[in-house]
Design a protein around this nucleic acid. Structure first.
Lengths: 151, 151
DNA sequence: CACTTTACATAGGTAACCTATCCAAATCAA
DNA sequence: TTGATTTGGATAGGTTACCTATGTAAAGTG
């Protein structure tokens, strides 16, 4: 099916580009932690479990990540007033700043590439919009559990 | 600068999408290893050092990855006839197959998202083309070493 | 022929993940 | 209200994927 070829190529390039940007940027923060900061920005104060689910990681992994973020001062935990078991994780101002810095660093790494390509801004805008829509769509997709093969 | 905002958004979506696909796909192979297979396919038989450089990892890391790939039967090492120190790494048929399978799995995970979006094929094609061009461009970009801050 | 460089391997450490399990708070049954 | 179940999070222990520092042997170089 031709659509799948397109999807394969889309994912291949997206992955390659993102990795390249990360590896050539001066990141002062491990990328996995930046990802959690990004989630926190997107969701607002959230529970560990909710974060783990959206990030598609295990709950223990998310617990550890949040602990690291808190130790660095990028995130803050408050007991959930509505549920004694739960904690609400939120971004601190420093965390917000760290996220912005990391994003700028990745974009800066990519800048020479964009310039070299001298890309048509319109196509670039289209590409970005498509990717954003796709990512948005993943948030509301049934999410076929990995574990069974699905043709 | 507006271009940077665009770049930030582009990278954010690309990273998110790629990760989502990986996490929701049934991968029988660690993604980092699939990446090396992908490089081998792209470069043909190559030295450890060359692979490390293109993948922007350290040489010891690449040594380990290649060892793992060889142990699983996905890659094959031959001494470089032209240089007694070097080894040439190449894909085996099984490696080629494993790579194709992993790619199909990621694409399959993305399929419901594409369908849900019912995306205009033309825009999708444009987005893919732009990403591919950008990734292509990274291969020939001066690659500002990470280690110094760049503007 | 020593001297340096180059290609790779090894050693030892950390981050980022996993499953399995535990604890405490919340909920549900009767 | 008590006892059993579910749910939110933490802990334990292991693997993969990375790193820097260093070792070893082959290749180039004066």
């Amino acid at each position: 099916m031709h659509t799948d070829d397109l999807a394969i190529e889309l994912l291949r390039s997206a992955a390659g580009l993102s990795r390249w940007a990360s590896r050539h940027a001066d990141l002062e923060i491990p990328w996995a932690q930046a990802r959690v900061l990004s989630l926190l920005e997107e969701l607002g104060p959230a529970r560990i479990t909710a974060l783990a689910e959206v990030d598609a990681t295990s709950q223990p992994t998310m617990t550890t990540q949040v602990q690291r973020l808190e130790a660095t001062g990028w995130a803050h935990r408050t007991p959930d007033p509505a549920d004694g078991r739960a904690t609400l994780v939120s971004l601190t101002a420093a965390g917000h700043e760290a996220l912005a810095t990391a994003r700028r660093a990745r974009a800066a790494a990519l800048r020479p590439v964009l310039e070299q390509l001298d890309a048509d801004p319109e196509r670039l805008r289209t590409a970005t919009a498509v990717l954003t829509e796709l990512l948005e769509a993943t948030r509301t997709t049934p999410a076929r559990e990995p574990g069974r093969a699905g043709s």
